[in-house]
Amino acid sequence: MQDVREALYVGQRSDGSLIRRPMSPHLQVYRFRLSMFLSIANRAAGVVSAGGAALGVLWLSAAANGPKSFARAQRVTGHPLGRLVLAGWSLAAVYHLIAGIRHLIWDSARRFDKAEINEDGKKTVIATLATTAALVGALFAVASSRKGKVTS
């Protein structure tokens, strides 16, 4: 051991014996991999989902405030920009759900080989996009069909 900082790189195996932990090179040294994108995307999706949940609480609060507040909330959810936010929230929540299920599978020490992770990563992208598109499309269709009926 030449450098005192190396003391921070000493870890333990599960049997208690000491081991020198590997030092990883900086991020830009690596070639881009889908798994690294999906990993950081899960964090981002978690943050966006939480932000969307906070907006959902505002919607609920508007409904509790009365018809006037609710009408304002409806103008937001009906506006193209509001719809874009709703679609983004859905995308983030769907991805965070699927990625979360993958994490639970990994926690049980399954599907953790490199080949399996790459294979599941592609399926995750497809499943996320398909589920989100179906969900958002159906939701907006239901919303607009019901709106026409209520006016009568």
Binding site: A63, G66, F70, L139, V142, S145, R146
Partner: peptide
């Protein structure tokens, strides 16, 4: 959400 989408107050 599907039950309530587009519903009135």
């Amino acid at each position: 959400v599907f039950r309530l989408a587009g519903s009135e107050h």
